[in-house]
Design a protein around this nucleic acid. Structure first.
Lengths: 110, 110
DNA sequence: TCCCATACCTTGACGTTCTAGGTACGCGCG
DNA sequence: CGCGCGTACCTAGAACGTCAAGGTATGGGA
């Protein structure tokens, strides 16, 4: 990810994770891989950002987790959305739209 | 500005300032007011963010400044884009588009 | 055997923003 | 005249999120 993306990612990571989990429960590593795939590597989620984010979001009650096992027999922690998480997703999605529209007004061509 | 916006603003402030100055030289306070006006207060630029940002961007060679006087006789520091700033504006604008499109892919409705 | 991918996590540094202050001046109002 | 408000600059300290770089562990393929 180029440097210019790194800072813009700030604040969008939670939204990305919330949206990813809205498709169904997933474990941490898979969340990161899915986001990178879906965005063609535009958003690269470092593990040093991912796990603190998951911890943070859990503490805020947006997601919950339990232990499970992957296809290849590795222990995995499976995250899923809580009702509060769904509400937060709606709020942050709407907010993102507002921001994008506001940016568009500023960035409109000469 | 709601909390949810605060974090997304991260990284977009430089772009907002660069774009504002692309319309012509302005002083710091006026830059903030113009952005707030144009975005209907979606983006609120605190002075504690503004002045460090202007200093930073000047150090990076994107903008330059000189002293002047406002309509009502107050001393003002007038900022303007450098050629490097214009290039940076093009780069960050393009990058913003890429990010928005990537986010759209993730956020697409179920 | 060794390396890679999977999968979890932590530490410390770094950059950016915010809160909350400070300075200074001119204008309008009572 | 005194006072508050808006303009206009600036800074220090704290808070926050991300990153680089490390660690642990296991299974599969070369």
């Amino acid at each position: 990810m180029p440097d210019s993306n790194r800072s813009i990612l700030q604040g969008t990571l939670d939204l990305l994770i919330l949206k990813t989990l809205s498709w169904g429960p997933r474990h941490g590593y898979a969340i990161a891989r899915w986001i990178e795939e879906t965005t063609d590597d535009v958003m690269r989620i470092e593990e040093g950002s991912l796990y603190p984010a998951l911890y943070r979001m859990q503490k805020r009650g947006w997601i919950k987790s339990g232990w499970g096992e992957s296809d290849i027999g590795k222990r995995i922690r499976i995250y899923s959305l809580t009702p509060a998480g769904r509400a937060e997703l709606r709020a942050q999605s709407a907010q993102w739209d507002v921001m994008v529209k506001a940016m568009a007004r500023v960035l409109r061509p000469a």
